[in-house]
Structures are given as C-alpha cells and as structure tokens.
Write a protein that binds this DNA or RNA. Sequence first.
DNA 1: CGGGTCCTTGAGTTTGCTCAAGTATCGTGG
DNA 2: CCACGATACTTGAGCAAACTCAAGGACCCG
Lengths: 254, 254
Amino acid sequence: MTILNKKPRVECGNCSLSAFCLPQGLTKSELEQVELAIERTIKFSKKEYLFRCNDPQRAIYAVKSGAVKVSVSTVEGGEQILGFYLPGDLLGFDAMARGEHICDAQALDDTLVCEMKVDNLDKLCAEFATLRQQMMRQMGQEIERDHKLLLSLGQMRTEERLATFLVSISERNKLRGFAVCEFNLPMPRIYLASYLGMAVETLSRMFSRLQADGIIKVKQRLIIIEDIDALYGLAHRNCQKEAEAGAETINFTP
Amino acid sequence: MTILNKKPRVECGNCSLSAFCLPQGLTKSELEQVELAIERTIKFSKKEYLFRCNDPQRAIYAVKSGAVKVSVSTVEGGEQILGFYLPGDLLGFDAMARGEHICDAQALDDTLVCEMKVDNLDKLCAEFATLRQQMMRQMGQEIERDHKLLLSLGQMRTEERLATFLVSISERNKLRGFAVCEFNLPMPRIYLASYLGMAVETLSRMFSRLQADGIIKVKQRLIIIEDIDALYGLAHRNCQKEAEAGAETINFTP
DNA sequence: CGGGTCCTTGAGTTTGCTCAAGTATCGTGG
DNA sequence: CCACGATACTTGAGCAAACTCAAGGACCCG
C-alpha cells in the first residue's frame, strides 16, 4: 500500500468517474466539502487487502483504477465472493453497521483508490441531507446487489447464472459508454466461479458451451458477445421482475 | 390489513421486545420521540403483503407477533426467499436506497406490527445521531444476513445448509431466552426450501436424515435437537470465520 | 527457455432434482 | 363430531446437472 498524495488536492470535479461515484447528486459546495474529506489517494498492489474481516472501519474507498474482489470465508478456507468492484464503485459500507468490516476486500490488480475517512464523512453527514441520502443509497445498492446474487445462486442453473452475469457486465458497460459486446473480464476464472457458486471446471464448460452455440466468443478473459439476444434469452428467463436494470456493480475492463 | 390503534399510544417502554427492536440503545427522551413517530399498530392477515416490490416506501415495520417472509421473484414466478422476520425484527430498510421496495414482504401468519412512518423517522434522524446510527446498524444487519445466506448457498451442501439454519435458530432463541433445543418453525417446508436454495423434497430428506442419525427429532414443524454438538459439527464445518455469533434474523415460535 | 499460473477437457461419480405416489394434518361445513 | 377436501409433508425411483479427479495445453513473467 502506497500513499500517493497526502492531504488536500483530490479533485472530484476533474475525475471522469464522478458521475458514478460519491459526488453523484451533490451540489457544488457540498462537493467541495467532500473533496476536503478525501485525505489521499492510495495504491494497493495486486493481492493486497484493502481491509479484512473484523478490521475496524477506517474509510470508504472509491476505486479509480484496477479491481477489487470482496468476499466472506468459512473456517475451512472456503471463500464466497460477494462482488467485484471496478472504477467508479465505492466500497467499505459493509462496516457501517458495527464499525468493523464483515468481509475481506482484496485487490485483483494494482489498484488506485480515493480514501475517505469515515470520521470526516460522518461529520458531513450530519450537515448535508444529500450526502446522508447518498450514503443510504450506497448501502441500498449493496443490498440490492446481494439480492440479485441470491436469486442467481438460489434459483438459476449454472448456464443461466453465467448468462445473467455477462448481461449485467454488458449493461454496465453501456451505462458507462464502453463497448457492449466486447470486454475483458477483470477476474480469473476461479474467482468468477466462486462468485457464481460453481466449480471452476463447470464455469469453463459453460463458457465453452456458449461459444459452441455461437452466442459468445471466448479467448481467455476476452469475451465477445456474438448473439446478444440469445444471451438475453438465456439470462432474462430468470431475471429480476422489475424491468429497468439498475446500475450493477461488477464489470469490465476498458 | 387492520389498523388497531390510531395516533399516539404505542408504548415501547412496556414492550417486551424493545431490547431487540428500534429502541435498542436510545436514551429515554429519544425513545419518547420515536414513540410519537409510531403512528399505529397494524394487523396483517395471513398471506397479506406488507409491501411489494416497487411499492413506494411508506414505513419501517417492527414485528410484534407472527412472522413475515421477504423474497424476490423472477419473471417466471420463481421465488427466492431472503429472510424470515420474527417478533422484535425490523423490516422495510430495503427501500431506504431508492425510496421503493426491492422485495416482497408477506405475512406467514396473522401478524401484528408497529408502523413507523419514514417521514417522521427521517426528521428524527437529522436530530439524533444515535437513531441515525441505529438505522445504519439495521441496514448493516440486512447486509450481514445476506452475506451469510450467500455463503450458505454458494459454498455449502444441502445438509450443511439445513444444519447451519437450525443452529442459527437455536442461537437466536438462546439470545431471547427461549428454548435452545426445542422450537416450532414458523414457516412451511416450501418456503424454507426456497430460502435454503433446494427442492422441497431434498429438504424433507435432509430432515429425515438428521432424524435417522439421531441428531434431531422432527414432527412437522416441531424440531427437537437431540445432539446439539453433532449439529454444530455439521454446521460449524462451514460457519463464518468470526467466532461470536451475531444476532440472526430468522427464528422460532415460542 | 523454464516454471508457474491459469484455463480447458475428459471420465466417472455423486448430489440433488423431477416426477409420482402416498400419508398426515388442519380447517370447514354438514 | 365426523367427513371431506385442501394443504403440507414424506418417500421412492430414475435421471440429469454439476462435482471431483486427473491430465494436458496456453499464456505470462523472469
């Protein structure tokens, strides 16, 4: 972990991710206050932990580049991945409840994050209703994400899970103005398999099957969607009721 | 849905559940304010919905008696149950993010709840840091619950899931001073099966297997734990790392 | 070029699902 | 109070999905 710039001068106004990050919905003056609360930008190297289970909550992190995986583990070392956090995503809200983190967050690559100290953030929350609301919204998104994953793990078969996942990436990319039908997965198969609740071999076979069916093209982590309607067909079959897809946290590499 | 008492006079101070409910951790004067915010007590009949997906958030509900199941559904009618809420539990926080509920809440039995209008609650939140924190804690518990279920669905086999579930009920009962080794499940098999991500038949077989092994005794919804160590053995194998079990939402009937 | 990690594929097995029938329990109305 | 129907639960048999084990290939980095 390397501290890149101390104290002032993080400029959300100049950050291309601000529309998806904490500043979303804040007024200019509120934003300035928030910027002051951001103490520094930090680099985490690949495999480094941003925080671990039971660590006291220090900060909320905004991913600037790279990728972070969040997971919970069993005593035996079994690991369930809960989500992947990509540029523009915020993480660390899991500790808002008890002041301690309830999951592990590990960098998948060298990762740059903005660090917002919770103490500062808390003070601002007392002052600005908008920020308070924004925090709530973030925690709500966390819950929503979990619900979708639960629906996936509990009700879908493996092929549908993968299709749903690919669709969610594609949709996220669309939101951000990235390619809808071609992207690199930021995570190795083993983590994706854990996230989707299946064995690595099964995941690999499902990729192969989708490819054999002419729906996607797979080359290692590069995915090209060839028949997006078919993919939606596989996924949509068991996609959540409410029509309009909300912003999904899980994603691409540009 | 029947409104039982209008406007004032819900008395948290006299309620036996207050230690587990919203008042937890509030000072006396704060509590009085909260009591004023509680508009009324409502009865929902069996199968009635407290709220449905996409409904605007009206209130937070505290279960006084009965039981509520919360779930999300797929377009095809597949239903994933996310949790069961029992006396002392609070629900409705899923809508804090977008102002609309993102899941369905249905009464499993005739159910009495205290209704706290969010408008009032929001005002109080601006005023009292404690209450704000308490709200955060509730949302955090929601997240924690989801994480545990994800770990269960993603990493455990059916027998372990059931064992883990039974253990969590037993522990919750201990916390509330109820019987640790004998309780009635408040939900039918079909809902429990959905919650645990398995077919009803599989759930039934697992109950039978645990009974055959002399670990529990099953008579419809009455469960008697005969060998709690063995049950822990089956569950603990894949129980979450952090040792001390937090309050779990999911439970018994006295 | 060599070693390690990551990914894929095959073969065989097992878990859990589906379909189907049978039993128990409960509420309702005769 | 009993009979009836509906709902809830259990059990069996056969099958399919997904897992495990094992080996081989691709890619990356030093």
